[in-house]
Amino acid sequence: MRGGANGARIALTPQKNWAANNPKELAKVLKTLTKVQKKFNKSLSNGKKVSLADVIVLGGIAAVEKAAKKAGHDVAIPFAPGRTDATQKQTDVKSFARLMPKADAFRNYYSDNSYGSPTAMMVEKAALLTLTVPEMTVLVGGMRALDANVGQSKHGVLTNKPGTLNNDFFVNLLDMSTKWSKSSKFPGVYEGLDRVTGKLKWTATPVDLIFGSSSELRAVAEVYASNDGKEKFVNDFVIAWAKVMNLDRFDLK
């Protein structure tokens, strides 16, 4: 198992230049987070310190907690500091280049040099992350609600309140008032039209629509789209999120 937040290699070559990482945006974010980290470390006494890797992860946690709060749910995501920052020297650029994401369904990213279809790559990635079917489902739905697509694309962001951690993705995906069809303009993209007026409501990719098309994924999507699924959705997302963030913390196990 390789990759992960530990090492903060996202700030180094090659990761910082990967298309899936939005190099331009990433550079800005990392600059800000590094500033925060340095200032914070200066304020600490008796040898305490926080790594950039921990700041990045804590940033994600803070963002998810806030998005959950916006949806009316107070959640506390466990955080275990102790990640360290690797240096460029410690980074085998060639070897890490092999990890370049060719597809990341969680952020609705797919590129031509993947060896499998978008949905197959999603399952492959979920398997690498040791995710269960419900965990994979809730993570994709949550990431869409959080508006976390690569390049801020709106595909699969099936909500009028992007950035709020709610179950809109599932509710709207399974809503029969939307009729899906292939986009005539963008191959591989699908359009969700109002069944009555024909007005364009949403756009999505196969890794979104598969949660309504595959009978087994639909069964789980229904759980999160149900009236009693709102809170479960937030709780399950938070647990799965924490699991992914700590996957590479062999030091904790």
């Binding site: 298309a19 609705n108 990213y109 797919y110 590129s111 031509d112 993947s114 060896y115 499998g116 279809s117 978008p118 949905t119 197959a120 690569v150 390049g151 694309s153 595909h155 963008f186 191959p187 591989g188 993209v189 990719t205 196969p206």
Partner: peptide
Amino acid sequence: ALAVIMTALASASSLA
């Protein structure tokens, strides 16, 4: 890449 995010799909499904 974003605009054609899923361009490879037609071939991808047979490839799957």
